[in-house]
Computed example of a mutant assay.
Amino acid sequence: MKEVFYECIAFERTGKILTVTLNRPDVLNAVNKRLHAELASLFTDLADDEAEVIVLTGAGKAFCAGGDIDWMQEGIDDPASFERTATEAKQIVFGLLDLEKPIICRMNGDAVGLGATIALFCDVIIAHDDARIGDPHVSVGLVAGDGGAIIWPQLIGYARAKEYLMTGKLMTARDAVAMGLINHAYEGAALDSETRKFAERLANGAGKAIRWTKVSVNIGLKQLAHAIMDASISYELMSNLSDDHQEAVNAFREKRRPSFTGR
């Protein structure tokens, strides 16, 4: 694996388990241009790694706070650069779905926007019970096009998915467990012990059977992703050009509520 390529992601091996850490803790692991490009390559590179099980987590207090606000402004100022972002978004989702090795999300803190998408496309999601999860693309005037429109309805049904995607509301990890959005939520140090226990169970299991079971389950998700992703990403590209998106970015920087006009 080309670990030298990665500046915003850290790696730690323990036997057959590779812990992959989003490593921008000073900004809650918000995704900027560099991290997004690294995520687009990450899961393809992990296929060539000797690890049997991947644990994906975040450094510091959050799993991933979503898109970096300065990077959003770059996408507004240079729409052509946002087209590259759209291509990478597909690589991230299909990379997660194509990787045969099981991926456990250790959701150590909030998973927001793209962070939520990445967490939910993992195979098992184990969260700290103080963590929250949500996809507030609409809160910044963007379409939830980078995978949220695919995965949320499959996990919690269309009515609930539309409620959360159209409002951008966050939910607690415990509510997410009760709703079937994620698998488990644990207090304090139990997050580490339970994640490790589950990772070791998979690492010591029948590897081919586990991997190919994942492949089989993901067939339907991959079909949905192929059917939906191009359209949802195109709508997100269009919303990147909207007045409402610029207003949301301005409001975030000015620490005020956005005043949306629907344009």
Rank of each mutant, 00 (worst) to 15 (best):
M166A: 09
K208A: 11
Y164L: 15
K214M: 09
T172D: 11
Y186N: 07
A178V: 03
F198P: 01
G180D: 05
K214A: 07
E200Y: 01
A176I: 09
G168Y: 03
A176M: 05
L181R: 08
D175M: 12
R196H: 11
D175H: 12
R211M: 12
N183Q: 11
D192A: 10
A203C: 08
A159R: 12
N183Y: 09
T213Q: 13
Y186H: 15
L202W: 07
N204G: 15
A185Y: 03
L181N: 09
R211F: 02
G207N: 14
R211Q: 10
M171D: 01
M171F: 03
M171S: 02
A185V: 03
Y164Q: 07
G205Q: 07
G180N: 06
M179F: 12
E194M: 15
A161S: 13
A203D: 10
D175V: 08
K169E: 11
K162L: 09
G168R: 01
W212P: 00
T172L: 09
R160P: 00
R196E: 15
K197S: 13
A199C: 03
T195W: 02
M171H: 01
A199W: 04
E194N: 12
A173S: 14
T167R: 05
A190T: 08
T213W: 02
K162I: 05
W212H: 15
L202I: 05
W212G: 02
T172F: 05
L170E: 10
R201L: 14
L202K: 05
M171V: 15
G205H: 03
E163Q: 12
K214T: 10
A190N: 12
W212T: 14
V177Y: 09
M171L: 13
E163I: 00
A176S: 14
K169D: 14
R160V: 07
A203E: 04
V177N: 08
R160N: 11
K208H: 11
T195E: 06
R160A: 14
K214V: 13
H184V: 06
A206R: 09
K214H: 08
R174F: 00
G188S: 15
G205T: 06
K169P: 01
I182S: 03
D175N: 13
A189K: 14
L191K: 03
K214C: 08
E200H: 02
R196T: 12
N204W: 07
M171P: 02
K162R: 11
Y164H: 08
N204S: 13
